[in-house]
């Protein structure tokens, strides 16, 4: 049996505001094995940051049991803090201090011996490509540099479990790829990563397991492949020159959803060559000419939109 870095059961949190209690997390269960990347995926306001804040001891849950690396989150908060590193959505660097000073500050707070601390700071500056900027105040850094410094600070003291709350939000594509590379390296070193993101592509690229969070509930969980299989999103889109051909095609194929205005026919497919060949063969047999053809394979976008859409409808039904 693999040890779990995070084991959460029935995590709940609500906030009180002027409209009464607002439920942010409505019973979340999580099981994240050590040495894996787990991604919590959801739109803004789904409760991702709240989840990270609870798991990283920043705020307390209203209910539920959580164990982080075997420590109880409430009763052994300090032991949990000793195990984790957090890089939040907003850069957690001291902007008045230089990059190097920020890292040395972390080394001091991790109670590393002076020399070890210096060594570690030097290593991290090199690894995160910040050597040239080491002597400048962090306020002068670009967004990507601040994010790198932020993550470097999290790594001082070698945490075994790292929370990355939307680590690439607001970064340009290149910085995002750099960040992904760093995350992969970390996991290769045996670190567990808990990643929240609103980018499906990011979860698809990095995560071993993905959980979809919407309105404070997990609506699906699994590997990217498993999630994609959840929905029938794959199809071939055929475009015709006139309505006559469209109707004829629908008739001979015996399936598909026609769109008379766009003159297209959407034929379900699993994306295999066999199905496409069949479709083309049948149309060819009846001499029905196709203007354009395009393939659509399901991606996490489809999964996400389909599942959150369904959930939205359910929410509209009166529950109370």
């Amino acid at each position: 049996m693999t040890d779990l870095a995070i084991a959460a059961n029935g995590l709940r949190k609500s906030y009180r505001d002027k409209d009464g209690d607002k439920v942010v997390l409505d019973g979340i269960d999580l099981a994240v094995p050590e040495g894996t990347i787990f991604s919590l995926l959801g739109p803004n306001g789904a409760g991702k940051t709240t989840t990270v804040q609870i798991l990283s001891t920043l705020i307390r849950a209203d209910g539920g049991q959580v164990q982080i690396a075997g420590y109880d989150l409430n009763r052994q908060a300090d032991d949990v803090r000793g195990m984790i590193g957090v890089t939040g959505q907003y850069s957690a660097v001291d902007k008045l201090l230089t990059g190097e000073e920020n890292l040395l500050l972390m080394a001091d707070l991790k109670h590393l011996p002076k020399r070890t601390g210096r060594q570690k700071a030097k290593e991290l500056l090199e690894r995160f490509d910040l050597v040239d900027a080491a002597g400048r105040p962090a306020a002068t850094y670009s967004g990507g540099m601040q994010r790198r410094l932020d993550l470097a600070m999290t790594l001082v003291g070698d945490p075994r479990l790292i929370f990355l709350d939307e680590p690439t939000t607001g970064l340009d594509p290149r910085s995002r790829r750099t960040m992904w590379g760093i995350v992969r390296e970390l996991v290769a070193g045996g670190v567990t990563i808990f990643l929240t993101t609103q980018y499906l592509e990011e979860a698809d690229e990095l995560a071993d397991r993905i959980a979809l969070l919407d309105h404070g509930r997990l609506i699906a969980e699994g590997t990217a492949e498993e999630l994609k299989r959840l929905i029938p999103g794959g199809h071939v889109l055929l475009k015709f020159a006139d309505p006559g051909r469209l109707d004829a095609a629908r008739l001979v194929l015996g399936l598909g959803t026609p769109d008379p205005e766009a003159l297209t026919l959407q034929v379900p497919s699993d994306g295999s060559v066999r199905v496409i060949r069949q479709v083309l063969a049948v149309l060819d047999e009846h001499s029905i000419e196709i203007d354009e053809m395009s393939m659509h394979t399901p991606d996490l976008d489809d999964v996400f939109l389909t599942l959150t859409g369904q959930n939205g409808d359910q929410d509209k039904e009166p529950v109370r």
Partner: peptide
């Protein structure tokens, strides 16, 4: 308001 304080809070200090 800066993230650094949140960082301190998640550290064993």
């Amino acid at each position: 308001t800066e993230g650094i304080i949140a960082r301190f809070r998640t550290m064993r200090i």
